[in-house]
Design a protein around this nucleic acid. Structure first.
Lengths: 139, 139, 139, 139
DNA sequence: GTGGTCTAGACCACC
DNA sequence: GTGGTCTAGACCACG
């Protein structure tokens, strides 16, 4: 699938799954009516316990992003894109906010903070272009 | 003292104490030789369990930022400023990096991410100026 | 046919089919010798997986309510009415019992529970009369 | 504590715990600020796996009935009574409704249904008085 | 001590 | 095959 689990970024695995599926719905990687990978399938792919995936899916149901089709699987709901787009900004803003708050209290000037952010964004861009070139090689 | 604890920003309380004390040393809020508040005192001020403060101090000793003066308390070490300045950038960069990584994977464009960051920075600026005006009232 | 499936009332679909067919036999909606709809037919009508209907029919055969007539289909047995009438009261009593037990443990007074029951019964009466008027329109 | 788990009433154990704790808050068995039994404690008392209790508590947090006090336990929230009272009626009404709906479709007359309900309520009353007499003996 | 997370593996009902 | 539930037991962070 399309998920990248990073065990050391402070977020629980199940939470990373929840967030990334929401993000995927928000950015047109998943559409209403799509069946998402089965619990066992995704668990195998992420090398993670099925219960962990199951828990993530359960939360996504509680958040009205998924519904179960009995004996069939889990489906993206009709209003998922809307709620997920809202959630995406909210979830990211929350994390960004608390990080920036700490940075701001750290005694660094806004200039210095901007510099760090720029540096990390550039690093990401490099990583991305490296990945996409890798993908081109693969294709 | 000068610490602001936020129980819901994902960081453990003890970790917030550690980081903020390091930041304070790095930004000339604390100098080598300064005695820091006792465990009980700080715990009371932050409305936090003394064990939590104790653990933070323990880590700061392990990182050579604090040193015990027998019968007196904990003192900022001579080379604390140097190590803390290094730590500050590293600690902040790490957090910023993992947040930006998630944002980047979320499907938002770099422009949109920049916009969120700008918004949150502005919000912080407002908050800061409000606080400083409050402080002036208090003084 | 005469079945109303509600996927969210806690009972499995196949179980709802089993119960409602028994109820229908008990209340003279189906008579001994009647042929019931084929698995495919009923599955299509209820928009349900044929396996689900199949399972319901299997249980009804095990309970001696239905019997296979080779090359013809499933037929209501001779003693079905008798057993279904017993079953009807038993099945309903069981469900009612466990619900009332929970209600009783909930801290509500018997009066309050009676009130809720009355309210829900009234709601059903309204629904019923609305349905029957709809049915008259259809005829 | 005050919980009675019935493994055969169709509801999952974790769900019974959730409902009964809500009921307990609604009926003044638990008050805002109260610390509820620890996961391990309740699990032991109910002879149930700690994870099952943990899951129930997690849902109660999601429903804003409980909040975690880190390293201390779970506390009943301030607005819990209000939300729980609403929930109590809603949860019971839902179950009662679906049971009565089935009863109504079963071909029994309203009189017959009333009779069954009365019978089961009486049975509960007897059980209750027996329990309370048992309790008096014990005291 | 507390709750939170994760793993491993089992059984169930349903389709 | 699917998801849902439960058990057993482990490890972690926190107070």
């Amino acid at each position: 699938m399309f998920l990248h689990i990073n065990p050391n970024n402070g977020l629980a695995i199940y939470d990373q799954i929840v967030r990334q599926i929401k993000f995927s719905v928000a950015s047109d990687g998943l559409y209403p009516g799509d069946l998402i990978p089965s619990v066992r399938e995704l668990a195998k792919e992420l090398a993670v316990n099925p219960n962990t995936v199951s828990r993530a899916y359960r939360e996504l149901q509680a958040d009205q992003v998924l519904i179960t089709i009995r004996g069939t699987g889990l489906q993206v709901t009709q209003n998922a894109p809307e709620t997920c787009k809202k959630d995406r900004t909210r979830l990211l803003s929350n994390r960004i906010q608390s990080v920036l708050q700490e940075a701001s209290q750290s005694g660094l000037t806004r200039q210095e903070i901007d510099q760090i952010i720029k540096k990390e964004l550039d690093r990401l861009d490099k990583k991305k272009s490296k990945n996409s070139s890798t993908e081109s090689k693969e294709s």
